[in-house]
Design a protein around this nucleic acid. Sequence first.
RNA 1: GGCCCUAUCGUCUAACGGUUAGGACAUCGGCUUUUCAAGCCGGUAAUUCGGGUUCGAUUCCCGGUAGGGUCACCA
Length: 476
Amino acid sequence: MEPKVVTRFAPSPTGFMHVGNLRTALYAWLLARKNNGTLILRIEDTDKEREVEGAITHIEKVLNWIGINWDEGPDISGPHAPYTQSERLDLYKKYAQKLIDGGFAYPDPYTEEEVDGFREKAELAGKAFLFREYRPETFAIWDGTKTLRFKVPEIKSYHWNDLVFGDLSAGPEALDDFVLIKSDGYPTYNFCHIVDDIEMGITHVVRGQEYIASIPKYLSLYEALGEKPPHLVCLPHIMGKDGKKKLGKRDGAKDAMEYSEEGYLPEALMNFLALLGWHPAPDKDGIEKEVFSKEELIKVFEIERIQKSGAQWNDDKLDWVNKEHIKKLSPEELKNKIFEWLPEELKNEKLIPVITERISKFADIKDMITRGELDFFLRAPAYPKEKLIYKDVLLEKITTNIKEAVNTLENISENDFNKENVKDSLMSLADKLQSRGELLHPIRFALSGLDKSPDPFTIAEILGKNETISRLQKAI
RNA sequence: GGCCCUAUCGUCUAACGGUUAGGACAUCGGCUUUUCAAGCCGGUAAUUCGGGUUCGAUUCCCGGUAGGGUCACCA
């Protein structure tokens, strides 16, 4: 039987978490939840130069917001604590000693400048730089102050299987005597992530495709340690919306929290992210579903269906997915969400349908307000009388029409003054005219004062009988 | 440049080697109660190219082309 699935998400606290990182976390989480496994959050903070204060808190905030939970991590501890690499230095030293004892590690005898010189020389010669070509004959004793390098056990080609990319291979030039411990005493990612994965019993390593090129190095290290590597899962890149470049912070990959601030629903972003590079199989009836709740996603997720090629970020699709998720909100949730974005004077339940069908994310409400689309609710509009004219119908005729409309609407009692009744009476009146527009347009405009607005019946219901008639009177 | 990876509508993708190459987003057109939005209906639109293998390739193999990744005391 396969052992229990144990995955990890191992970000480095070097800045904000962008959507690319987030998708990696999502797939690792989905894999764990799908298999009733464990997800470990591990902080890889071995680069003290690039570390950014507050980044860990930010990462946790993003994961919490979108709904990715972890079973072990720095905040909740667990059987493999600590979960922050800078607190596990002794462990790496232990493994380093093991490698030294086995003849698989040695102190780098050169200065940084010398190594740079070697690299430059190789570049000038048009060759790839390999440190192992400069490997000393005999190894000095490592006193812990020098950088410690790995000695590749065997220069050979590697073939391995990746759960997404399938069979992969690389030639011997992918192997080198890479740095295990830096001169500042901290281990490199290449070294400590492997130690931790072994120690924490990780069964599946999920990470970006950019690591494929380094995997032979990891494989040779596992070999030197006498350990079996875990299942490797490399994810295709997310590409930027304009070009075909990997989506990185430089080319506009946004802080995941910005999506929260713009009023995207966490489940919608999760849904969209999951679909960027993965698609579920069509169901028995051949239906290709695209809108999934968190639970549904866990149910249908299959690692085998992750794509190999990079997927381009698509804001339009994200907006559509978000709108679909908004539609699935309960009336109570919808109300709360919308009210968060409304000033006090607009917090009225009657406006919810009008707003809902006009937004794809909640920040759109701000734009609606800016454009004055909700002003009709606050005050009677002011407008030049010409605006009431429909096509080339005479103003006198328009006035008559509005008067008739008022008469009709007076017949509806205040309690029955709803959209349906207003529509029924107004439509039967309109049908008597040659064109409905010459009645409906002036009414709509008199009520809203907007070129683009909800239909007059909806507005009438929102305003109520008195205000509706008062605005029509004013128009007359 | 070396090594590696990838290739279906504009985009995300579906398709035991046999389908009129399907769906979704976007786009275009129509319908619905005037405008907008929403909704419904419909249209345009793709297997990178060249060789094989095969009765038959989107699918398997080889090559070209294009794109991407990677070559740190960063992860």
